[in-house]
Write a protein that binds this DNA or RNA. Structure first.
Lengths: 150, 150
DNA sequence: TTAGTAAAAGACCTTTTTATCTTTTATTAT
DNA sequence: ATAATAAAAGATAAAAAGGTCTTTTACTAA
């Protein structure tokens, strides 16, 4: 549904929103270590996110990544569409090219309400709002020992 | 969430349950054509499904694939676990290695009820029951838009 | 018993995804 | 200025997923 790349991107952008600021920029390495993501891979993802104005960066000493107020207004869907090139959440769960209420796959009516919910959250909530909620709820952003096999 | 391989396997097994029988076995090619799946790839998947007794086959003229009564009692979860090597539906939506009510990822409480529902259906309903429902509801099993339906 | 059929087996190929490494460029503190 | 720092850029590599092809084996009907 989501690529590993977009999962990394979502988690690390939320992490930035929570922990970084214009005054306290963060390096790829420190973020990669914090959420347990391969740092050269994350560096590549961040390059892409900077280019499309989802996150910001400056080079040199005290440089690093952070979010501007503009960045904070982006959404998780923006991240997914940038990294995966499309919104795969919307694809049919069983792979049908054309799956809808009139032409439903065998699980369409189970999957549809879920998609509406998660899609709504990812589209209607800004990164900042999402990050605030994450903090308030004590949600976890660390992959920890993510299964690197499989 | 599901690999393409397991999607193919699920759809074609349901298709077999609906259209094949001990008296009317079906070839890989006819099934592959019907549901729009690459036939050499489906052949490989079917080999695997035969080996683990989810579907059955005989060689030679009038040979092909079909389901025994034993096969009909298998579940979609059996297919997924055989083809994907694990049940990826149960993985955390954002990739956390350990994601549960105490250690929730940012979307855990949205994803969890959906997983319960779809997992329940895939585990508690036999292939035969599922196929009957598919038939009754007129659900679609064809990957492409081309309606090959009756 | 033989010709034709269809699956089994296994080798092989391609593309995509994930991940790493090296060099260059921009920034800043001294 | 210069040395240190950290991201940008780009080349490369490893692994997984998806897909194809050829040969062998089993079965059946004429």
């Amino acid at each position: 549904m989501l690529s590993r790349a977009s999962k990394y991107a979502i988690l690390s952008t939320l992490y930035l929103a929570e922990h970084a600021s214009k005054e306290k920029k963060m390096s790829v390495k420190s973020i990669a270590n914090s959420i347990n993501v391969p740092s050269p891979f994350l560096a590549k993802l961040f390059q892409q996110l900077v280019k499309c104005n989802i996150i910001s960066s400056t080079k040199g000493p005290n440089g690093g990544f952070f979010l501007t107020e503009d960045n904070e207004k982006k959404t998780v869907i923006d991240i997914i569409e940038e990294i995966d090139g499309t919104n795969k959440i919307d694809d049919c769960f069983l792979g049908l090219a054309k799956c809808d209420g009139n032409n439903p796959c065998p699980v369409h009516f189970i999957v549809e309400p879920f998609k509406k919910k998660i899609f709504g959250k990812f589209r209607d909530q800004t990164i900042k709002e999402f990050a605030n909620e994450v903090e308030a709820q004590g949600s976890v952003l660390f992959l920890s020992g993510l299964d690197k096999k499989k």
